[in-house]
Design a protein around this nucleic acid. Sequence first.
DNA 1: CCCTTTACATACCGACAGGTATGTACTAGA
DNA 2: TCTAGTACATACCTGTCGGTATGTAAAGGG
Lengths: 210, 210
Amino acid sequence: MPKRPLKRRLREPSITREKLLQAGFIEMHLNGFQAASLDTILARAEMTKGALYHHFPDKAALGLAVVDEVVRGFLLERWLGPLEESGGDPLAAIQRALQQRADSVSAEEVELGCPLNNLAQEMSPLDERFRRRINATLDAWTDGLAAVLERGQKGGSVRPDVDPRRIASFIVSSVEGSYGMAKGAKSTRLFRSNLGVLIGFLETLRVRSA
Amino acid sequence: MPKRPLKRRLREPSITREKLLQAGFIEMHLNGFQAASLDTILARAEMTKGALYHHFPDKAALGLAVVDEVVRGFLLERWLGPLEESGGDPLAAIQRALQQRADSVSAEEVELGCPLNNLAQEMSPLDERFRRRINATLDAWTDGLAAVLERGQKGGSVRPDVDPRRIASFIVSSVEGSYGMAKGAKSTRLFRSNLGVLIGFLETLRVRSA
DNA sequence: CCCTTTACATACCGACAGGTATGTACTAGA
DNA sequence: TCTAGTACATACCTGTCGGTATGTAAAGGG
């Protein structure tokens, strides 16, 4: 029973938890969940194992919290947010959101890939809890897109024969696929090109006013 | 130095190697490369560690061989092969290949995902050798599609303003993205729907004969 | 028939993983 | 001020992993 002095600690649970989530997100984004090392996460967060296991029962709980609280935030900010700023017709709003992402994407972002897609590919077959939460997030994205398309239909700018949910799913799949392929090819050019084709495809859904 | 009797062995190196590759492929398809356990692979192949390390210097070499010799074969058989049977115009050949895959896809295939896509997502950021080989395979796919589109352009059935390579990349990305999303959603329906939308998109590339 | 080479089999190792047991320091409430 | 519970810190444990050292049996050339 050694009674040596201990390291000082923050004793601010919400901050500690947030640090763990952020460090967990970075490590998971770099290495995936399974290969994510708790020791590395703790080193980055400047925390110890005691802190981690005080806030989370196990590694999976940390991972799930990262999905819910960090990854989901990214999606809202990067894809659903820009969708809300709907100046002009709805279809153009989607196209604008895509173009914005194509323009502002960095080499680092492409090489790391979309965190949501990365986790989906890795964890969906392995853990049902991960699969459900990741899918819930992706569904939110699909729902957002479908709602915009539907608005376009009611406004008369989107062709009435298109199925909003089908198209929305296709958009999500194409974007995630583009993230994946661009990551493999290490090519922002490929990413931009793909989003460009997708934008062109969306144009074919517009009622031709000419 | 125990001089106990040993287990009988095949002593047919090419068969042994093939068994290891097949078992390796299955394990990698189920769990990814990093999480693939050599012991599990050896159990499935009914081999021992001695056999494995006689044929491959390390785990990575086995994984790379699986990519080159097994995964690549799948792509050729499932996507590039059907492209060759080109009755009718080239665009229709691509559409037929897509439709064929949509029709024949099984629930198991969807839940496991495309092995090439799975490995691409997992290994591209981690190992440059994997990345190069996986990308070479994906490029072969893109090249095949681009060649067909180009033939269509020369034959006058595909609009002259489309960029074959851009479209080919987009097709590959969309298909892989659809594999990924369908895997996460555990939904063959989603996969089929997405390929349906993609087939519809390809139709917009045709010169309108009407 | 011997002897070298090939083709494995078996036993073992160090590294690192996630997880736990237990101790300590700070804090809020009585 | 005392105390109980919170919020950590530290040491350690066990299992699994990829990898290796060393042994043995079969095949082929001389």
